[in-house]
Write a protein that binds this DNA or RNA. Structure first.
Lengths: 192, 192
DNA sequence: CTTGATATTGACCGATCGGTCAATATCCGG
DNA sequence: CCGGATATTGACCGATCGGTCAATATCAAG
């Protein structure tokens, strides 16, 4: 019927995501995306729409990947829950320390949150789900089940989300790795 | 000797800071700054240099103001230390909840940290000083002085910085105010 | 008033911005 | 091999970008 795509859409989107991840939204030009994908400008617009739509797609995939990663690392049996949580936080801090590009979600929030309802929905949805994933493993880690544990786990999870987001900001801002590890330790110790 | 300035430099800088605060670095055009200050383009460049230099000036003043505010709210006698800390955190959370524009420092980090050494120095300097201010009041709030208290206060202060930065990101990202207040409460409760 | 120094203004610069489109290429069902 | 449908390409668009500069205005000192 029609001419087929010559490029792999997933590959192109990965290049788009990576470029936005490096440079943020405003500082990324469509020509940057053309270079990164290797596509012609028309193909890019034909396949993905405007620059803003490309960013939304990229951010959406980024959020899904982040949640999938967290779930993969945190889901498991009750016995190992605390260990999995510590390991996960450790991996996140190491990632923050080693990363030069920072977090795409943080850039999206800083540049676009409040201006773009679609971005707003994605971000708040991500935070809600992320908190729930963390609340799940924290709940599992409680040695005994008593009344109020669920509320406590949820509160501790939202605190942990805040700490992890703060660590990201501080890491990108040049705070020493030792300080970041100390913060993570202190936060985890506060879970008891 | 020469023709005097017709505008107030502090007022112009306030307008510049406010514009960057609203729109971030990349999304702010020099014409935006021209409109905000009411100055001609040449006067703007003559007085403040390039767009990047204007941003650095704005961010520098922003950081000084944030630290000055924190010190004003947190300095005092030992007896009221814990109360001052709680009040300060409460004010910060309220500010986050009510703010539509977010935090200029967060935008600077997201958009420019890692690319501009001057920004990097300002940001890491801010974080160090901020942590020290918080550590001071936390140290005052300890009921008894024993060995290790200073280290503990410093660790708790850096954790609190992370929480406050995380709250900022979450607030801008649309997380409900109740959740943010809960996080602040939980974090403050963990200081004991 | 003259003069030297600085401030103000906005037209102007080349580059780049996000986005479009006509020309062309390539596919598959007939 | 043909014809309808879609993909590809990159020249091109008007707008805007950050930044400059010559013309002019306004000061204080002499």
């Amino acid at each position: 019927m029609a001419r087929p795509r010559e490029f792999d859409e997933k590959e192109a989107l990965a290049a788009i995501r990576s470029t936005f991840w490096d440079r943020g939204y405003s500082a990324t030009s469509v020509d940057d995306l053309v270079r990164a994908t290797g596509l012609g400008k028309g193909s890019l617009y034909g396949a993905f729409g405007t620059k803003r739509e490309m960013f939304v797609r990229a951010l959406s995939e980024y959020c899904v990947a982040a949640l999938t990663f967290a779930e993969a690392r945190l889901h498991g049996d009750d016995a190992g829950a605390l260990g999995r949580l510590h390991a996960y936080v450790g991996v996140m801090v190491k990632g923050i320390v080693n990363s030069k590009r920072g977090c795409l979600l943080a850039k999206a929030i800083a540049e676009l949150a409040g201006d773009d309802p679609e971005i707003d929905r994605m971000v708040s949805g991500f935070y809600r789900r992320y908190e729930d994933v963390l609340a799940g493993v924290i709940r599992q880690s409680k040695p005994s089940r008593k009344a109020g544990d669920d509320d406590e786990a949820q509160r501790q999870a939202s605190l942990l989300v805040a700490v992890l987001r703060g660590l990201e900001s501080m890491g990108k801002g040049g705070v020493p790795a030792a300080t970041l590890h100390g913060i993570a330790e202190t936060a985890l110790a506060a879970l008891r």
